[in-house]
Amino acid sequence: MAITSVRPRSRADAPPAASAAGGKIYTPYSNWFYLPSAVIYGVLFLVPTFASLYFSLTRWSLFESKFIGLENFQLFFSEPQLIKGFTNTLIFAVITSGSKVVLGLLLAVLLTSRVIGRGYLRSVVFFPVLVSTIGVGLTFTVLMNPERGLINGALSVIGIDGPGWLTDPKYALLSVALVDVWKGVGLATLIYIAGIVSIPREYMEAARVDGAGAWETFRRIVLPLSRPATVTVIILSLIGGLRSFDLIWAMTRGGPGFTSDVIASVIYKQYQAGFYGLSTAGNVVLFVVVTAVVLPLSWFLNRKEVDL
């Protein structure tokens, strides 16, 4: 019986497609699977983006448009309430994002411990996230009524004269920010819970063996290893804070006066007045502001590594 030797197939014997791809065979048919996503992305994002850039340079209505260059941007930046809107937007974003990071982390630590009713408490904390933003705004508008509101009524029982939460210029923006934190802290807590649960148990056990207390374990293990969750919460909260509109409009409509106006509400007021090109230019400004804040911050936060 003759034995035929079999020579191992070398890379040179492989088909050209396999050789060029390092041994992996690709067919041209796989590229077609990108087409539906590319079409959806182009229709829902690229086309509206370039259309907004064009219409921001025009004076337009539903049936006609006239190219006027940068006039809309010059007029938009000459609006006196724009400076107030910029300031309020930054204040609102910083307060809400910072509060969500701190409260979300503390609640996540509590809800990953051996607390009684942990599952029920997680549901309670996350429930406001599921409620309509407009519904939350209208509800708290009633609760914060300075004369008939439940909050001031409860404060009067213990002898405290409650302020005009939404009617006093000193408290209006802060009151809306606190409601936004109440509604959004559940999502931040959920992200932190996922980050804490993913920490290997060996680290916790090693810290316990070394005699580390709860504070040392939190400071040296939980806090640094929760950094990806912290970055996610900061970025999402900042984007939401910079783009916030619906809650502010439902509760104060930018008032009293312009004291709680943000960029988005200024844009909407221009649109209501019929200045469509001007409001479109405001949308472009808002897009640039969000991009200019979030992208560098995201790069800065993600470039650092965790050292244990």
Results as ranks from 00 to 15, higher is better:
residue 28 P to I: 09
residue 44 L to F: 15
residue 15 P to G: 15
residue 24 K to Q: 15
residue 288 V to P: 04
residue 267 I to Y: 01
residue 72 N to Q: 09
residue 103 L to V: 14
residue 57 L to V: 05
residue 203 Y to I: 04
residue 56 S to H: 03
residue 103 L to S: 08
residue 241 G to H: 01
residue 3 I to T: 13
residue 132 S to N: 07
residue 197 V to G: 05
residue 115 V to E: 11
residue 44 L to Q: 07
residue 252 T to Y: 04
residue 152 N to W: 04
residue 275 F to L: 10
residue 200 P to A: 02
residue 307 D to K: 08
residue 131 V to H: 08
residue 25 I to M: 13
residue 73 F to E: 06
residue 30 S to Q: 14
residue 217 T to D: 06
residue 244 S to A: 15
residue 224 P to W: 07
residue 87 T to V: 12
residue 154 A to D: 08
residue 257 G to W: 10
residue 141 T to W: 08
residue 216 E to L: 13
residue 12 A to N: 11
residue 78 S to Q: 15
residue 114 R to A: 15
residue 111 L to N: 00
residue 295 L to G: 04
residue 134 I to D: 10
residue 3 I to M: 10
residue 217 T to F: 03
residue 258 F to P: 00
residue 43 V to T: 13
residue 67 F to Q: 11
residue 189 T to D: 08
residue 153 G to A: 05
residue 278 L to R: 02
residue 9 R to I: 15
residue 181 V to N: 00
residue 255 G to L: 03
residue 109 V to Q: 07
residue 75 L to Q: 13
residue 173 L to F: 04
residue 128 P to R: 06
residue 277 G to F: 02
residue 20 A to R: 14
residue 6 V to S: 12
residue 45 F to N: 14
residue 95 I to E: 05
residue 247 L to W: 01
residue 262 V to S: 05
residue 221 I to E: 04
residue 69 G to Q: 09
residue 38 A to V: 14
residue 136 V to L: 05
residue 12 A to F: 11
residue 112 T to P: 04
residue 156 S to W: 09
residue 7 R to W: 07
residue 266 V to M: 08
residue 125 V to S: 02
residue 193 I to P: 03
residue 71 E to L: 13
residue 177 A to H: 01
residue 90 L to Y: 02
residue 121 L to P: 00
residue 158 I to D: 08
residue 278 L to P: 00
residue 180 D to A: 13
residue 17 A to Q: 09
residue 255 G to N: 03
residue 273 A to C: 03
residue 262 V to Y: 01
residue 243 R to W: 02
residue 43 V to G: 07
residue 132 S to E: 13
residue 268 Y to I: 01
residue 128 P to G: 07
residue 103 L to I: 15
residue 32 W to L: 15
residue 214 A to W: 14
residue 59 R to F: 01
residue 106 L to S: 09
residue 264 A to L: 03
residue 276 Y to I: 05
residue 174 L to S: 09
residue 173 L to H: 02
residue 189 T to M: 13
residue 303 R to A: 12
residue 26 Y to K: 12
residue 304 K to L: 07
residue 147 E to I: 07
residue 206 A to T: 14
residue 40 I to Q: 07
residue 48 P to R: 06
residue 95 I to S: 03
residue 149 G to R: 01
residue 210 D to W: 10
residue 302 N to K: 11
residue 153 G to D: 06
residue 162 G to E: 08
residue 171 Y to L: 12
residue 252 T to N: 09
residue 230 T to W: 00
residue 129 V to Y: 10
residue 104 G to I: 05
residue 5 S to I: 14
residue 253 R to T: 11
residue 71 E to M: 12
residue 58 T to Y: 02
residue 308 L to A: 14
residue 27 T to Y: 12
residue 114 R to Y: 11
residue 161 D to K: 10
residue 253 R to Y: 11
residue 287 F to L: 15
residue 19 S to P: 04
residue 65 S to I: 06
residue 194 A to R: 07
residue 163 P to R: 05
residue 16 P to Q: 10
residue 274 G to Y: 10
residue 9 R to L: 15
residue 260 S to G: 03
residue 199 I to F: 06
residue 272 Q to I: 12
residue 230 T to L: 13
residue 65 S to N: 14
residue 124 V to Y: 10
residue 106 L to M: 15
residue 124 V to K: 03
residue 279 S to I: 03
residue 253 R to P: 00
residue 307 D to P: 01
residue 279 S to G: 11
residue 48 P to E: 14
residue 199 I to K: 05
residue 205 E to F: 07
residue 126 F to C: 09
residue 225 L to H: 13
